[in-house]
Nucleic acid binder design. Structure first.
Lengths: 345, 345
DNA sequence: CTGAAAGCGCTTACAG
DNA sequence: CTGAAAGCGCTTACAG
């Protein structure tokens, strides 16, 4: 029952084992006749080249490690599916590595990644320290960060312009005439949270405003619920709430409506970030900022494969602008408002 | 920059290459002294055994192929994460294969699966014909289907008891006093849809009822929306709607409330299946039937690894009972009802 | 175009 | 416990 090898095929076809190998190597030179004999024998035996044996000598495993921290945020499953399909489309396959929260597991994971001889690495909803990044580089494994950036620009990264996105949200909320504007933060250490907050508060400041209130939800549903309660513990309530992602915005929306009995957007406007699937569902109809996976995913894969081809890692940072999608959780901007720099959806 | 090999380590440690191999093989015999020398040399060189080379001889790649059709149904990302973590916990890693809708791609995928020398296969939201299953078996690759079953019981499968689940829903809806009960079907060809519908209609029949209306949503959001419109095109409207999964139930709920202006559960009760994440969100608070991944996933992994260990595939079908979770999209059962076989949540 | 041979980095009998 | 050697299933110069 053991699978047929190239030698089995060679014997049946009456050719050398090299000839078999060549007919399965794109671009190798085999006569049409030999090729036909080999193909016939191969299909008779149900032969398929052993990729493991091949990669031992070619030094290409055809596998890309995808490191993910969690899929709770429903923006990510879609990203994962697209990444995986795109990889498949290019002759690779994704080998999954889920991290725990602790940092030393990241070390374990990296070790396994190395053992499996992955050709490259995509970090999706997980952070990677500069030190670990260096270890990948020293082992010659190209890495691209998806949706996060590293300060020292030592790794390739594909992300959306979160500063710009934060600004867009602030400008829109200002245009709608909001005054007591609150921010529900994600993880303090993440580049996404840092940048979204930066763009948001900076634009507020340019218009002479500051954050009315602020709390932290750590990109976690339950924590976001608790933070929302704190944000609305005492009047006067915020009249607008910018959440660092949709995952938290949806949780906040539920607390606002179903626990506190507030009307959205009449009592308070809510804006999220990501344009995750549920943001478009009528029950939420959440105003949010897109991070277009249709352009980001192909670029991430292209960048990675390019570095693999080149056999050298030239870090490159790609940033794409997201756009504000205005749905039902926000009011319409006041027509008469002539504030400079105001953005219309 | 090439990674260190066992030979490099051997030279540095002043021992044979075999000794190096042995210290990295659990259970092999090495003296404490040799082991220490090897470990020191290994860490000095940053050595890690090459899993690819190892698997060529051990015939164990440490990789499990996970075949997935789509992640749109948000019940699946969680399943995927749990499966992947559980595999990791057992020293394996998941290699992802996303299928297209067409059947011949399944053939291509299977070929790739074979090339990558995966130790086993888990089919998650994808179907596999008996013929392809046979090909896996003939190549000695254990397979377990997750959440679907094959009629001929030739493959292992872990699923929830969908017939029982369908019955529970019917009994509950009957207890609530519903009369015009409709069914929103999934894929006609899927075992989940077939079984849920069977249990549902059978229990209805036992109580002298039939389906008031029925339409098909193919487990697709947009199709479910369209089907819901058709189901409610003409009065008298159904007063209860059982959807074959939560993904469609949530879509139906949105059409009912936001397009047709109906109140749930006053005008119509809605029940889903799966207990996907959004079912618990207050905006939906969907009554549904669980398919407990916390028990199903570990069992699926156990079954697969057991077959891999045994080096023989003994198909086994495991079925777990789900439970009805009553939330806000259904009314309370009428207290005074004494119907035999009535179920209380 | 073709075949014999070396070698990718390991594991595993086999002697000692 | 230890080392020399064969071999896992391939690819790839090297001659012819």
């Amino acid at each position: 029952m053991a699978a047929a090898t190239s030698l089995d095929v060679a014997r049946l076809a009456g050719v050398s084992q090299s000839a078999v190998s060549r007919t399965f190597t794109p671009g190798a030179s085999v006569s049409a006749e030999t090729r036909a004999k080999v193909l016939a024998a191969a299909s008779a035996l149900g032969y398929r080249p052993n990729k493991i044996a091949r990669s031992l000598i070619t030094r290409r495993s055809g596998m890309i490690g995808i490191v993910v921290a969690y899929l709770d945020n429903l923006y990510y499953p879609n990203v994962l599916e697209k990444l995986s399909r795109q990889l498949q489309h290019n002759g690779f396959h994704a080998l999954m590595f889920f991290t725990q929260q602790s940092t030393d597991t990241m070390d374990v994971i990296l070790g396994e990644l190395l053992e499996y001889q992955v050709d490259g690495l995509i970090m999706v909803s997980a952070g990677l320290s500069s030190e670990l990044a260096a270890r990948c580089a020293s082992n010659g494994i190209p890495v691209v960060l998806f949706n996060r950036t590293l300060d020292d620009e030592t790794l390739s990264a594909v992300s959306s312009d979160n500063v710009d996105g934060g600004e867009k949200v602030a400008r829109f909320l200002l245009d709608c005439g909001h005054d007591r504007i609150a921010y529900l933060a994600g993880w303090a250490g993440s580049s996404t949270d840092r940048d979204r907050r930066l763009g948001f508060t900076r634009m507020l400041a340019q218009n002479g405003r500051t954050l009315y209130r602020e709390d932290i939800g750590h990109y976690d549903r339950e924590e976001a619920r608790a933070a929302t309660r704190r944000l609305f513990a005492a009047p006067p309530f915020p009249d607008a709430l910018f959440c660092a992602n949709d995952h938290m915005a949806v949780a906040a929306l539920d607390v606002l409506r179903h626990e506190l009995g507030l009307s959205v957007p009449q009592d308070v406007a809510v804006v999220g970030y990501d344009d995750a699937p549920m943001a478009a569902w009528p029950s939420y109809a959440l105003t949010t900022v897109t991070q277009p996976p249709d352009v980001m995913v192909p670029e991430a894969v292209r960048l990675l494969l390019q570095n693999i081809e080149a056999d050298a890692t030239r870090p490159e940072q790609l940033k794409f602008a997201g756009e504000l999608v205005v749905r039902e959780t926000t009011r319409r901007p006041s027509q008469a408002d002539g504030r400079a720099g105001s953005a219309m959806p």
